[in-house]
């Protein structure tokens, strides 16, 4: 084991390093790393004559070659990308705006606002999914009544049931839930900018919105980078919200199907389709590669080029 290796020359004295590392390394390796690699390997196997045999890239050929598989995979990938785009376009700007307002030290009730706006983030997807399903339900009428109150009733539609609107609606629900995280991280980054920098800007006559865009925003770009990659990994791994509000079929007509729900259906089967662990592993492998590419672009392409300011 790697943890014990360093002890070779002075075994008696440094056993404690191995003891300290062992529990974490064992659990992590056995439950996370080995299954991850085993899943990747299983994507290369398939059933043949009642046994699982090595089939090379056949599962991937099926995934991309078979029109039905390819259609659902590309549909899920595109939906997932759209889900991510909505997060980037709505969640980050709203988070930055709220954080910028909150970071004003003379603002009263800061603690109250912070606590309240973070509430949705601690709720589970199950709660969030059902709560919004009820509120947007045309049966109950909370959403139409509220739109009526501001004279916009004609805008209401059963969004979760419409192919064109369901995915965007769910993405916005997810943004509603998670906006607290970018808000908090950016808020923390804004607080860590030293007063001298702000004072210097003020002496130079740079104030208000101009100050924010010219001074603060460039300084918090690394934080926005971290938030973006966290959002990316979270979105391409999402499942719960769609499953809770639209079911494993990700209706209407697959309009809200993302990679997580596709993986679940493929692995466990649904209705008449049998579950297929090897095709499931192939989809998990594709998700792994997508996340790996995203993380690599961030680490090598973005983060290494971003200048970090140390104060």
């Amino acid at each position: 084991m790697a943890a014990a290796a360093p002890d070779e020359h002075k075994p008696a004295r440094r056993w404690h390093i191995a003891v300290f590392l062992a529990p974490a390394v064992l659990v992590y390796t056995a439950i996370m790393i080995i299954p991850l690699f085993s899943t990747l390997v299983q994507s290369l196997f398939g059933p043949e004559g009642g046994q699982r045999v090595f089939v090379g890239l056949r599962n991937f050929q099926t995934l991309f070659g078979d029109p039905r598989w390819a259609a659902s995979f590309w549909n899920a990938l595109w939906n997932n990308t759209w889900f991510f785009i909505i997060h980037m376009l709505v969640q980050n700007p709203v988070g930055v705006l709220l954080a910028a307002i909150l970071s004003n030290p003379s603002l009263r009730l800061r603690g109250f606002y912070r606590t309240a706006i973070f509430v949705p983030t601690i709720l589970s997807f199950v709660i969030v999914g059902f709560v919004w399903k009820l509120i947007l339900s045309p049966l109950w009428g909370v959403a139409p009544n509220m739109l009526d109150a501001i004279g916009l009733k004609h805008l209401f539609a059963p969004w979760l049931g419409q192919e064109g609107a369901a995915l965007t609606t769910l993405a916005l629900v997810s943004v509603w839930q998670f906006v607290g995280i970018p808000m908090m991280l950016i808020y923390a980054a804004l607080l860590s900018i030293p007063d001298e920098v702000i004072e210097a800007a003020e002496i130079d006559g740079v104030t208000g919105a101009k100050q924010f865009f010219k001074i603060q925003l460039p300084l918090i770009l690394p934080t926005i980078g971290i938030i973006s990659i966290l959002t990316f990994v979270g979105n391409f791994n999402a499942f719960d919200l769609i499953y809770v509000s639209q079911g494993a079929q990700a209706g209407p007509n697959g309009a809200t199907d993302i990679l997580g729900t596709l993986l679940y259906r493929t692995f466990f089967g649904f209705q008449l389709q049998q579950g297929d662990p090897n095709m499931g592993a192939a989809i998990a492998t594709m998700m792994f590669l997508i996340i790996l590419v995203g993380v690599s672009i961030y680490l090598f392409g973005i983060q290494s080029r971003m200048r970090r300011y140390q104060f």
Binding site: A2, Y28, I31, P35, S38, I229, A284
Partner: peptide, 22 residues
């Protein structure tokens, strides 16, 4: 070892579900 243990921050454990269930 530090890098090995940090892998799991970025790679979600869900992707190993097939093998975890087995």
């Amino acid at each position: 070892m530090g890098l090995y243990l940090a892998l799991g921050i970025m790679i979600p454990i869900r992707l190993g579900t097939v093998a975890i269930l087995q």
